[in-house]
């Protein structure tokens, strides 16, 4: 299928009727839509998904869900989507129309099967008509009676146009989808889950397996006794009731998320007001905290004051520290000298005692007395020998005077000197610094307290602060409520699993007639053939996905192509997760180790995801037109050229790129011109955007 033309009428900044022709050819498959930031490229993408899916936009992916949540709810999104100038002119409708060609349809009573049907779909909203938007589908040559209900139309879009599950691969922002590379296995599985179903065309086979299972269950039920049948009916009702409850909870969760988003945007407004007009950026609950802080600082101030007073007692000594040191030194020398004198006297005394005892104490020599002159001679000699042997003690210092101090007085001076040495002037300075800092802190905090107290007297500030607190309380409650909903949902799912198991056991026990047994056996063969087929297809699709993704990455990424930095991605492995939970994709380096996707740069992530998207689309059983916002996202100059010359020209039969003049300036446009079927420029004046044929003429315009 292809989209030939789109008409936007009064949608958001698109004033009046805006027609854009998207016809492409085999050689020229690209349509380029240039627009500066804020001119409406993203809203152009939004208009298409709104036209196709209406309220179900939120189910496409988180990005589109946020677009709805920005306005609070779907009805508000609709109301805010009417062009603001049109509102002033008294008009009340906006619409989006998509004209489709090359549409493939199966044979019905109304038509032959074929792949060149044309159809037009239109979604319109009138803000003066309460209720939903109107959704209309017209197929050339087929009566409108085909679509009797809204569900018929939704099914038609999902089965023959672009399935909702595939929309994330068809309408996307190339920069934002790079974040898929950061998803957990479970999240990645669910994002890629649709790739194995709708997109690869296996959903029809799985649908038939499901219908065949319903058929075999039906055969058994027909043969059940009245009592067993009653049990089956009760169990099935239980399952149905649980499914209803789960659906109800899911819609409650959606409402909860929408309410949360709305309240969060209110909080942002309150905060903006308070930042602008309030003297503070605190909330009232922090006032008590500030009082507490002030009390603590005052206590600290008092402590420092006491410490300073203690220190100030020794200030005179500090000032006289030099003199005190001199006295201390003098006392030390004086003590040394008196010690030496004492030692000298002791030695002289002992020598005299020795001489005295030598000459005057018995026994005496038998040959007569020693003469006095000899005694003098030997006494002098002994004195000299003692001096030689024990060393002569000499005074080293000549002190001019001596302090006449008692021992306790000397001790006091030494102690005072040591104390001053320890409590050096650094401590004084530090204490004074701390004291000043605490004083400043007290002044600051008192200023803030004063502002808060004055705010507390400002009624508007009080109102906004109260509203903000109330909104924060609501958010907490909503988060709690959402958690409770999710728990209930999980419990119901588990309960249904058990009920289904017991139902299967019950059905298997029923004995059936010979004729029904034949049918059961035959139906089971059909089921087995289809299950084998689906399982083999999933395996082969996985291996094709691995190969195609890897080849594409090799094409696009220089690092892989020229082998520099080693082979940091040498292989890709895609595995189907159990329980139909989608795909798990792993990257391996040349040593066979897993390369974590989060280790890739933003540009590399974009290349990896773009390669994966292309691989998925190449395996799809339908040809989709592809719409890409920010097509060159985080890429550098050389990779941009690869994308423009090799990736986009081969991505699909119809590729619509929405770029800024920074991404695809005129110089790059020349590069890609050979592939471009049509180029348009979004022009904006007075907040109104119009679509004009042509492209940026220069970097500036």
């Amino acid at each position: 299928m292809k989209i030939d033309k789109i008409i936007l009428t009064n949608f958001r900044q698109y004033y009046g009727e805006n027609v854009i022709n998207l016809m492409t050819t085999k050689e020229k498959n690209i349509v380029l839509l240039g627009g500066k930031t804020g001119y409406g490229k993203t809203n152009f993408l939004l208009s298409l998904v709104w036209c196709l899916y209406g309220e179900d936009i939120a189910k496409i992916d988180e990005g589109f869900k946020r677009e709805i949540q920005k306005d609070g709810s779907y009805p508000k999104f609709l109301k805010s989507s009417l062009n603001w100038d049109i509102v002033r002119e008294g008009k009340s409708k906006f619409s989006v129309e998509i004209f489709i060609s090359d549409l493939e349809l199966p044979e019905t009573r109304e038509n032959e099967s074929g792949n060149n049907y044309k159809c037009r779909i239109k979604r319109e909203f009138n803000i003066n008509s309460p209720g939903d938007d109107t959704f209309d589908i017209k197929i050339d040559g087929i009566k409108n009676s085909m679509f009797q209900t809204l569900d018929d139309k939704i099914n038609f879009v999902n089965d023959y146009l672009i399935p909702l599950e595939a929309a994330k691969f068809v309408f996307f922002d190339a920069e934002k989808i790079a974040s898929w590379a950061e998803l957990s296995t479970k999240e990645e599985g669910s994002v890629l889950n649709d790739a194995l179903g709708k997109l690869l065309g296996l959903d029809v086979y799985e649908g038939l397996i499901n219908d065949l299972n319903i058929y075999t269950d039906g055969l058994r039920k027909e043969s059940a006794t009245a009592q067993v049948r009653q049990t089956i009916i009760t169990t099935e009702k239980g399952i149905e009731l649980n499914i209803e409850k789960i659906e109800h909870l899911e819609s409650e969760i959606l409402i909860n998320e929408s309410d949360t988003a709305k309240i969060k945007s209110e909080i942002v407004k309150y905060e903006a007001f308070l930042v602008q007009y309030s003297n503070r950026s605190f909330n009232t609950s922090s006032l008590d905290e500030l009082y507490k802080q002030r009390d603590e600082l005052r206590k600290k101030e008092k402590d420092l004051e006491n410490k300073f007073n203690e220190l100030s007692e020794i200030i005179p000594f500090v000032l006289a520290a030099g003199k005190l040191e001199e006295v201390n030194e003098h006392i030390k020398l004086q003590d040394e000298e008196s010690y030496l004198v004492e030692k000298q006297n002791e030695l002289i005394e002992k020598n005299s005692e020795f001489i005295e005892k030598l000459f005057n104490n018995p026994p005496f020599p038998t040959d007569g007395d020693i003469s006095f002159s000899k005694k003098i001679f030997y006494a002098d000699k002994a004195k000299r020998i003692v001096e030689d042997v024990f060393g002569k003690i000499e005074k080293t210092n000549e002190l001019e005077f001596e302090h006449d101090l008692s021992k306790s007085e000397k001790d006091l001076i030494v102690e005072t000197f040591n104390h001053i040495q320890k409590q050096s002037k650094d401590i004084f300075e530090q204490t004074i610094d701390n004291f000043n800092r605490v004083k400043n802190d007290i002044t600051e905090i008192e200023k803030v307290i004063k502002n808060i107290e004055s705010d507390l007297e400002d009624e508007e500030i009080i109102e906004y602060t109260t509203n903000k607190k109330e909104a924060e309380r609501k958010i907490e409650k909503l988060i709690e409520e959402k958690g409770s909903f999710q728990n209930q949902k999980e419990n119901l799912k588990r309960e249904n699993e058990k009920l289904n198991q017991s139902l299967q056991v019950l059905l298997k026990r029923i004995s059936v007639s010979e004729q029904k047994k034949k049918k059961l056996d035959k139906a089971n063969l059909y089921i087995r053939a289809l299950e084998d087929f689906v399982s083999a297809q999933k395996k082969s699709k996985c291996s094709a996905l691995e190969q195609t993704t890897f080849n594409e990455m090799n094409q696009l990424m220089h690092k892989l192509r020229d082998g520099s930095n080693g082979k940091f991605i040498a292989a890709i492995k895609a595995e189907a997760l159990p329980n139909n939970d989608g795909l798990k994709i792993s990257l391996f380096d040349s040593d066979g180790n897993i390369t974590p996707k989060e280790s890739l740069s933003m540009g590399e992530k974009q290349i990896y995801i773009s390669s994966l998207v292309k691989a998925i689309l190449s395996l799809a059983v339908q040809d989709f037109p592809i719409f890409i916002d920010t097509p060159l996202g985080r890429l550098d100059h050389e990779h941009i050229n690869n994308f423009l010359l090799s990736y986009y020209p081969n991505l699909a039969n119809q590729v619509v790129l929405m770029a800024t003049n920074n991404e695809i300036p005129p110089s790059r446009f020349k590069l890609v011109r050979g592939f471009v079927a049509n180029a348009y420029l979004l022009e904006s004046s007075k907040n109104q955007t119009k679509i004009k044929q042509g492209y940026f003429q220069s970097y500036e315009n």
Partner: peptide, 29 residues
Amino acid sequence: ELEKECRKNQVSFISVELLEIENSIENEN
């Protein structure tokens, strides 16, 4: 591929191409 799986499981490929049970049983008889 589907035809291959049908052959393997002795199921009529045309019948599956549902994408019938009584007819299939009758044809066997």
